[in-house]
Each structure stands twice: as structure tokens, then as C-alpha cells.
Amino acid sequence: MSLRQGGLLKLTMVFLALGSVLQFILQFVASVSFLPIKIPALPLLTRLGEVGIYLSFVSIVTLSFLIWPKVKALLPLGLILMISPVFTIVPDYFASPWWIALEVGVVVLGIVAIVESLLKATPLSLLNLPTFFMVIILMWVALDVDVVHSEALLNYLALFDASVLGFALYTLVWKTKGLRMRRALASYGGAVPALFVFLPLYFVVSGNRFMEIIMNMVMPSVFGIVFSNPYSLPVFVLSLSLALYFIVALALKGNFLASLGYFMIVTTTFLGVNGYHLILYMIYPLVGSVLLNVGDEGASILSKLSKSVQR
């Protein structure tokens, strides 16, 4: 079965997309709810966000079972996630040293899954290397916090900017030949509204010192990112706007898997700064990275490598 085919896979992706958006809404709403602004239908949004978390959980487990023949490391990852709620009935389970072993296992499996999916992806996926680097670095940061109890202070914004740049190039280059010009232009045009989800915030924080101070607290609270330079907020908002724009543009161009994967990465990877708090959040950017790699069809890096070796 091709990954782009199969009704069940499509259904799972739809649920995963829905769950990811809803859980991101929860992340956002929970963080801005203390501000002196009225959020319409706050209780409803909170409840929907909670449902989104569980929908994401079910979707990721299902997805890992569906695409494990292509990315084998996803199978144990999905199994761990599936049984993880069972551990919560064991008192003090999270304080056991064996829980550290499980977390390390998740990270190892996740990294192998990224490498495996990258090798089986087209060479175009190499443009997303900065993203994979960012995800793996954040995994290390999370383990550093959870296992060694030491927080790393890195320039996370530089990692993010490099990742956005790579993803933007990936979006622009993807199917430059196979796609009609009209479809491509429609995709870039249709994605413009996505640019304006966060872009107004850029103008607000650039010109309003008070809002800059407030958003300097809100954005790290939503995304988990910590700025090494407090004046970096406008750059982060700008990068975020571009990331969302290219996510939607890529989805409209037809690569829904990769666009969903990148959305999953952007919304959760920096939660690693505080140790992710949930196993689900730890697995989220790993699965997102895999989706980023399986979204394209064509000769894989591995086959090209083996051909060049044969020559």
C-alpha cells in the first residue's frame, strides 16, 4: 500500500490533524487565559482541547501501526505510547529509575525512526535536516532536564530559524515540475491567510512595548521556547508566521503529511526545554519528523546511495 493511499491512513491523518490543532488551541488558550482579555467560549475551547489530546493519542498509536512497514522503528514507539497510560496506575511510577530507561528508549527509537524515514525519503528531505537536528537537540535537552536535572540554555531561536528556512525551501522546491503552475500559485495565494494568524502579533509587539513585555511571557508559555535574548520575540513571531504560511502552502500543494508533520513539530518540540511533562508530547515531534519524511514519493536516498555504491 502506498502511503498516500489507503482510506484508513487518510482518516488517521485527518484525526491527527484535528487533534493536533485542538491540542494546540488548548496550549494557547491555557497560556493567554490570565490576560485581561475575553476569550470567547473559553470552557468549550478548553474541553475541545482536552479531547484533542486524546484524539492525537489514538491517532498517533493508529498511525504507528499503519506505517510501521515503511518505518519499522515506529512500531515499538506506538506500542510504548499505547500502553503508557497503564503505567499511571502504578504508584510513583514516574519516580522509578526504570521510567528513565523508558524515556531514553523513546528517544533512541524516535531518533532511529527519523534516520530510517530520512534514508527512505527522497533527497528533497535533506532540506529538512535543520528541523531533524532541532528535534534531536530538544530531545537531548529534555533528557538533560528529566534525567540529569540540568537545564541547557541554548539559542533555541537560531535552531528554529534554521528549521523554518529549510522547511520553506522544501515547500518551494517540492513538486516544482510535477505541479501545474496554477495549482502552485493557488497554494501560495491560498496560504496567505495563515500568514496573518501570527503576523499581526509581530506588528503589535514591534510597536507596543507593553505588548512585547506581555508576549515575552505568553509565547514561551505556549511553545516552551526560552529566548536567550529577550529582544528576540518579534523575530520568533515572524518566523512562526512564516512557518504557518509554508505549512498551509505545502498542504494546499498536496503534501499533507509533511505539512502536518511540521505543524506537530513547531507546536511541541520546544516543550522539551521543560522536559515535555508528558510522554505523548515527547513522541509528538518525533512522529512529526517521520511524517515530514514520508510525505514525498520517488527514489529514496537509500536507493540512490546503494546505486552509487554498485557503480
Binding site: L8, T12, Y54, T62, P85, F94, V145, L278, I279
Partner: peptide, 25 residues
């Protein structure tokens, strides 16, 4: 599959099934 996934998510949500957390810091 559709109904199964939705029901599973809703049941987990309504029952507030605790998700496994990471190691305390």
C-alpha cells in the same frame, strides 16, 4: 475504524484517563 477512534478519544477524554508523564525534574 472511524467510530472506534472517535469513541476511544471521547471515552478517554470523558473519563480523564491520565496520560503518562515524564520523570519529575
Amino acid at each position: 475504524a472511524t467510530v472506534g477512534m472517535l469513541v476511544a478519544a471521547l471515552v478517554m477524554g470523558l473519563a480523564s484517563v491520565p496520560m503518562a508523564q515524564t520523570t519529575p525534574q
